[in-house]
Design a protein around this nucleic acid. Structure first.
Lengths: 297, 297
DNA sequence: CCGAAGCCATAAGCTCAGATCATGGCAACG
DNA sequence: CGTTGCCATGATCTGAGCTTATGGCTTCGG
């Protein structure tokens, strides 16, 4: 196989019509160049250049080769540039694995900020219902990074993003819809808008109620995080939802109650190894906007 | 600059999702492959591949590079194939320098035969009025080969093709239009259809008449070889033309007389150096058809 | 839990490719 | 005829690319 070096030397000799000038421009000596062209000619099956007293001239063999030689050199340069641009955060695709609730929660705001600085970078989302699924998928090689609750026994790199606060949504005409704050055990005998088994927030709700000393009765279960506040606003019962999914507004007829003491979920970005430059940049955007994961409302 | 070898190794690892398998297929050891990929990654500005326990996975940087790497490898292979095909007489362009009269004479028949065996090879003609111009142009690098009278003091390679015979054309009602043969001095007092000064056949005519002991009077001069027999058939006077340009038929009202003794012009193919495979093949075709340059009529 | 297997990375040493310097051969020019 | 320009060839040195040996980590099966 011809080397790119040989092709480069050949093209330069053609462009300069001179071995000596081409050697100068390539910063090698004329005999080195001569030797490489000779090697290329042996690989090509015949002379590529006719050596005239004061110039060189392409042979038909050389003429057949020249356009492809130019193309190969251009493609190799494009390969290098494309890779360096990708490493330099100008092009490429970032693959993110996360939970459904986070797709609705912290990601939208982060992605808005990301697009302002990296309009060329494509985003591909892999959404999962539960943290264990998310961890499993990441271990299997899915995505460049994951965003979710901190994985246990994670061997790769993790970065804490902050916490998202869980709040309770009830109907406006609910007896509990007084003031801005409530204690979780005050809702101990209520039937709750719950989440389907295996849904990430199901565990969060069960765990929080257990901490407050009760097991929640179930009015209805939903697979969709976004449905929970709507069902609560409709009067089916209280729902525990991440604060940040209410950023686009509270469903009509709904009332938000902050919990005292607060229930929070810590969010983490994690990668299997040292983050790729793109992944690292996205993590910075997530961290920089950690206010969005917390108290803003 | 990345080498084609590195790009080849990278693509193979991606295709096999395994360093070990790729190394096997490439007939190198895994550490050699590992080292080349590492070198490529340094040139690219970041990791191209993420090493997983049982597989490898492209990074965004790697994904940006991959299509261009494939293209570079394909173009390099095309360059090699194109050149080898050209050397093997399958594609390319053959450049021929010659005289106007020869374009009309021996070349058409030779090119017909050539196209039967080399339909893919393009032909480019450089036509000259006179042998000295032809030699000068060849020395300056024009064309792969020349076809014409033998050049004097030629340092390159020459190959004799044979001779073309010069005949006289007169009008059918000309007093000389009797039989098939005539002596040139019998036309000593005739006014001739001559050629423009500098035209290759002007010298041939002048020289032949001088040998026969007279200087031709001039009825008309033409720049076009093909015009001479037509003017002679129209009765303007005798014209000396190469036998072979009458292959497509004698002009209406014309009569051909062979000269006794014959006047002939030796044709040669010549190149500056050893002929290129294409040029050599064409010369063989010219030689093989040397009957066409001679007595056929 | 432990040993074996799978897989990639690193280090040391060897071989070959690519370079330089020196020189030769040929053509063109004054 | 001597000088200049230009490419080819040979000898030698250096760096790239390879192999062998080994290490580290993960996964799998008993």
């Amino acid at each position: 196989m011809a080397t790119l070096r040989q092709l480069e030397y050949f093209v330069m000799v053609v462009d300069e019509s001179s071995f000596t000038k081409a050697a100068e421009l390539l910063h090698v000596t004329q005999p080195a160049l001569s030797h490489q062209i000779r090697t290329l000619e042996r690989s090509a099956g015949g002379p590529l250049l006719e050596r005239l007293p004061r110039t060189v001239r392409l042979t038909p063999t050389g003429r057949a080769m020249l356009p492809h030689a130019r193309a190969a050199l251009a493609d190799a340069e494009r390969a290098r540039c494309a890779a360096r641009q990708a490493a330099g955060l100008e092009v490429g695709e970032l693959q993110i694995a996360t939970l459904y609730s986070i797709t609705l929660g912290v990601l939208p705001a982060a992605l808005r900020r990301w697009r302002l600085t990296h309009p060329e970078v494509g985003i591909r989302l892999f959404e999962h219902r539960h943290t264990e699924e998310l961890i499993e998928a990441m271990n299997a090689g899915e995505a460049d990074l994951a965003v979710g609750p901190e994985p246990t026994d994670w061997s790769g790199v993790t970065r804490t993003l902050g916490t998202e606060e869980l709040v309770v949504v009830v109907a406006s005409d609910d007896p509990a819809a007084i003031g801005d704050t409530i204690k979780l055990q005050d809702l101990a005998d209520r039937a709750w808008v719950h989440y389907a088994p295996g849904h990430g927030l199901a565990d969060v709700l069960d765990h929080a109620c257990a901490q407050a000393g009760f097991e929640p009765r179930i009015a209805v279960r939903t697979e969709q995080t976004a449905a929970a506040p709507a069902l609560a606003a409709a009067g089916l019962g209280p729902a525990l939802v991440p604060d940040n999914i209410l950023d686009n507004g509270l469903p009509t007829g709904g009332h938000v109650l902050h919990l005292d003491p607060p229930v929070r979920r810590t969010l983490t970005a994690y990668t299997r190894g040292e983050p790729d430059p793109l992944a690292a940049a996205f993590i910075d955007v997530l961290v920089w906007g950690d206010g969005a994961a917390g108290t803003r409302r």
